[in-house]
Amino acid sequence: MDNARSSPSLWKDAWRRLSRNRLAMLGLCVLTVMVSLALLTPWIAPYSYSAQDLDLGATPPSGAHWLGTDAFGRDLLTLILYGSRVSLAVGFLATAVALTIGVLWGTVSGYAGGRTDAVMMRTVDILYALPFTIFIILLMVIFGRNMFLLFMAIGAVEWLTMARIVRGQVLGIRRQEYIEAAIVMGLPRSRIMYRHVLPNVLGVIIIYTTLTIPNVILLESFLSFLGLGIQPPQSSWGLLISYGVETMEEYPWLLFFPAATLSLTLFSLNFLGDGLRDALDPRAATD
């Protein structure tokens, strides 16, 4: 209720503008379909993800296997569907973790300034300097392998850049007269940050988020390779693509379909991101 009351017009107007943007709506539809398919996979997948048919081997797309099969005779469509569960979950959840920590950290640091800012940003610098691979191996040694760690590891790295970007933006906005006007009104700091600072850095946050999601999806395959992520026979888009690359010359469809799925997701994300950025900036309105 408080939310609805405290920032009514911007979000309502933004939704109205977004719904007029055809590309952004198309992107939103594609993403919705993808997420629904991922959620419904166990019921709609034509085969089990571990069902092998070694005699069949790799076959091109056919009536029985719409997208073909891999070298073990597993149905590629099934693998992509199961893979989307992992990849989309990693993509959205890890990014959400990075987004939350990064935006909070950056906003507070940039707005507080002075010593607080210095301490917070040096912390970011130190974490930046930590070699990622060693960090991952350490995590695995201490905690063993699980999905939760995957989100943590990715989130722990991705929020650093977000925090830096947001802080830079906030530093600029803090000096604006409308922030001073809000201070003179005697509004509490948290409210100034939430209502006056954040909406004005949203554009950059959204753009960076749409860039982070694909990054994270691919990072998962790297981590899986190191042994932190998921292991066959489970699959993810990242894993499918990296196997696909190995057998590109003999079985091109094994690379083409997973890569096409990932590209489609990225296109949709970018269209939606651009649409959101424009929708949230009243000055960009064409009406």
Partner: peptide, 28 residues
Amino acid sequence: QLNDTRPEFQMIFQDPYASLNPRMTVQD
């Protein structure tokens, strides 16, 4: 204490292009 007293003394700024939050309607 300062924040509670602030409404008593208000300021009008020089640049009306910079002193209004570009993402808030007049209503808000």
